[in-house]
Design a protein around this nucleic acid. Sequence first.
RNA 1: GCGCCGGUAGCUCAGCUGGAUAGAGCACCAGACUUCGAAUCUGGGGGUCAGGGGUUCGAAUCCCUUCCGGCGCGCCA
Length: 602
Amino acid sequence: MATSANQQQFAHLFAHVLARVHAAADALIADKVLPAGIDLSRIVVEPPRDATHGDMATNAAMVLAKEAGLKPRDLAEAFAGKLRAEPLVEKVDVAGPGFLNLTLKPAVWADVLRSVLDQGAGYGRSGIGRNAAVNVEYVSANPTGPMHVGHCRGAVFGDALATLLAFAGFAVTREYYINDAGAQVDVLARSAYLRYREALGENIGEIPEGLYPGDYLKPVGEALAAEYGDRFKGRPEIEWLAPVRAKAIAMMMDQIRGDLAALNVRHDVFFSERSLVSGADDAVGRTIDALRADGLVYQGRLPPPKGAPVEDWEDREQTLFRSTQFGDDVDRPLMKSDGGYTYFASDIAYHKSKFDRGFTDMIDVWGADHGGYIKRMQAAVSAVSGGKAALDVKIVQLVKLSRGGVPVKMSKRAGEFVTLREVVDEVGRDAVRFMMLYRKNDATLDFDLAKVIEQSRDNAVFYVQYAHARGVSVFRNAAEQMPDLAIPAAGAGRAAWLAGTPLARLSDEGELAILRRLALYPRLVESAALAHEPHRVAFYLYDLASEFHAQWTRGKDLPHLRFIIQNDPELTKARLAMVEGIVTVLASGLGLLGVGAPDEMR
RNA sequence: GCGCCGGUAGCUCAGCUGGAUAGAGCACCAGACUUCGAAUCUGGGGGUCAGGGGUUCGAAUCCCUUCCGGCGCGCCA
């Protein structure tokens, strides 16, 4: 669809106004009021806390006053003089310590809504990412069993963040790192081998300590028996370990993929750790060599940690990475005493692979128990990229699971952990996803299985979805009550039908509040994406839903505020346009979170 | 002992990278359904932003420090 420059300014109103403030600053530079080359980057345009202050506020005068050698209020007056000439601006006030409060012409809000309708699902989409390649790595659960509930949060967070970044104009790759090379997958193989013998009819008795006891390995044993017969029976481990391991990992990953699909979590790339160390191409070794060539790897000794005594501490010389040179607390070992690479060494090679594949912008999503690992990984990324790549690690805090206020115990023993699948089956994918995102990632989260399915007011998922369903229902009702309007079904026809609607008839304060909220969406998308904080989208949706519900209820007391006004098709159409805008943005935001936007919820 | 993350209303949490008189929900109290979906809405009380210093026009937000809670602290992943 062709978007004129005129429409463009309403597609992202705040960016447009900020640009005009910058233009005003340039004009003041030309007037010698401001010095040339002054830093404008700290200027923000934001909605004022108090609506009586106007539609937008900017701190321009306050942040520039010092460098300009002027009093904030005097500079603000100079800005006001320039901004008053702006076509969109109705009124400019200087307030408080030097705020510039802008009141926009009423027609602006109708134009914003017009832009929402024209762009539809594309409204809020941003180019701020400039198509930069970003790698988002999340989940990366060990392929040794089904996903448990603790994985939910990171999975949902990473998935939503990736979607959000893509919407903000980044070229996103969603990645899963399969830890298929360490000692754990050998344990998995031995556990599966036991199930294999069981499948062949042997009584295996108790699962020995140190092996995975879960029943989920029985199908693996059966599959091995079906594939290999008794070929590995009674044979030494060296013969069967590799094929059994490969089969078990493959089947576990299939299960994990299924679990993720149940949560609506997607990945583009599943990257195998084993691929870094197996075969002729020893990527880990090459990475270490390269770091050594840069003087970043050496043989040395580490002091034992103070205050937390390690029982079997053995002072020995080892291969160390100079992570202290990049801000880490101590240097970190790359080789184990058995000659193998540490997990860290593999992870360096893995992140180097990301860099080699063109990513200078990396995001890893980890659980809280890996927090102590951040500095060394950032050090490593800095080292392997020559300082060209940056890694942001997002930590998702623990989820405290309960049911009706009673904590759900999660024993490590067989069958007693709560799987991701069970939670999704019990409360639904939408509820899980929304609740996981309705909290800042680095705050712990209380998740009550009973409360989440309560369809009550304190349940944000239903609150927002209900608003969407309500909006859709307005169109159903309008079509029924006012057939002469000839409302087309949702979709492309809807926008065309609404094209000539006199939106200026939306003049109620509640309606204008909603339009202002819609105008905020593009700015919200950008700030949430840049901050790597998808939870902001969830809170925005809650606010928008709240304003919609409030306006709806006002129509109960004041019939002239209802959306459907029988004897005024024009006004009805204008309000339907507003509802369409609300529904569009609610659906868009819910889509960013990977949560459904139902048309009805009866 | 060190590092990271938290501490905001009785409870659960926001607070838009430093802005104006700190906001929601739950709970509590009082109200609104013959009317577009009451899974909703309106109003009310409730705060030393853990404590103390600092930076500046301005701090819940940045720095220092103390206290409390969580996570982590060669050769696990």
